[in-house]
Simulated assay, not measured.
Amino acid sequence: MTENPGIILTILAFALVIGPLVFIHEMGHYLVGRFFGVHAEVFSIGFGKEIKGWTDRRGTRWKLAWMPLGGYVRFAGDMSPASQPTQEWLTLPPEQRARTFQAKPVWQRALIVLAGPAVNFLVAIIILAGLLMVNGEDRTPAVIKAVQPGSAAAQAGFLPGDTLQQIAGRDIDSFGDVVRIVKPRPGELLDFQILRGGRVQNIVAAPGVEVEKDRFGNTYKMGLLGLMPVEPVRVSINLLEAPAAAVRQTGQIMQMMVDGLGQIITGRRSVKELGGPLKIAQVSGEMANIGPETFIFFIALISINLGFINLLPVPMLDGGHLLFYAIEAVRRKPVSIMAQEWAFRSGLLVLLTLMVFVTFNDLSSFGVWDRLSGLIG
Results as ranks from 00 to 15, higher is better:
residue 3 E to S: 15
residue 359 T to Y: 03
residue 242 A to C: 06
residue 115 A to W: 06
residue 297 F to M: 13
residue 270 S to T: 13
residue 231 E to G: 12
residue 166 Q to L: 15
residue 325 Y to F: 14
residue 12 L to Y: 05
residue 258 V to N: 08
residue 195 L to V: 02
residue 315 P to D: 03
residue 361 N to G: 01
residue 283 V to Q: 11
residue 124 A to S: 10
residue 342 W to C: 14
residue 248 R to F: 03
residue 255 Q to D: 14
residue 322 L to D: 10
residue 344 F to M: 09
residue 143 V to K: 09
residue 51 I to W: 12
residue 150 G to K: 01
residue 325 Y to G: 06
residue 119 V to M: 09
residue 313 P to K: 10
residue 77 G to T: 02
residue 99 R to Y: 09
residue 328 E to G: 03
residue 331 R to L: 11
residue 76 A to H: 10
residue 145 K to F: 15
residue 82 A to E: 14
residue 370 D to H: 13
residue 168 A to S: 11
residue 301 L to M: 12
residue 234 R to A: 14
residue 137 E to P: 10
residue 214 D to P: 01
residue 4 N to E: 06
residue 59 G to K: 07
residue 372 L to V: 05
residue 337 I to N: 15
residue 305 N to T: 08
residue 273 E to H: 10
residue 133 M to F: 08
residue 309 I to W: 01
residue 107 W to R: 04
residue 36 F to A: 07
residue 181 I to F: 10
residue 211 V to I: 12
residue 209 V to M: 04
residue 173 D to H: 15
residue 304 I to V: 09
residue 54 W to D: 04
residue 326 A to P: 02
residue 358 V to H: 01
residue 36 F to L: 07
residue 131 L to E: 04
residue 219 T to E: 12
residue 177 D to S: 05
residue 372 L to P: 00
residue 297 F to I: 08
residue 184 P to C: 08
residue 206 A to C: 00
residue 79 M to L: 15
residue 221 K to L: 05
residue 226 G to K: 06
residue 134 V to N: 07
residue 262 G to M: 09
residue 70 G to T: 02
residue 339 A to V: 15
residue 92 L to N: 08
residue 237 I to L: 08
residue 271 V to S: 14
residue 375 L to V: 15
residue 38 V to L: 00
residue 324 F to D: 01
residue 122 L to D: 00
residue 339 A to R: 14
residue 320 G to P: 02
residue 264 I to L: 04
residue 299 I to Q: 07
residue 6 G to Y: 06
residue 132 L to F: 13
residue 98 A to V: 03
residue 294 T to E: 13
residue 22 V to F: 00
residue 3 E to C: 13
residue 90 L to A: 11
residue 133 M to T: 09
residue 308 F to I: 00
residue 359 T to L: 08
residue 305 N to S: 11
residue 55 T to P: 06
residue 229 P to D: 06
residue 356 V to N: 02
residue 207 P to Y: 04
residue 139 R to F: 01
residue 358 V to W: 00
residue 228 M to V: 14
residue 51 I to A: 12
residue 372 L to W: 03
residue 295 F to Y: 04
residue 30 Y to A: 07
residue 320 G to T: 02
residue 371 R to M: 08
residue 354 L to F: 07
residue 102 Q to I: 10
residue 182 V to P: 03
residue 259 D to V: 11
residue 254 M to L: 12
residue 12 L to H: 05
residue 96 Q to V: 13
residue 162 D to V: 08
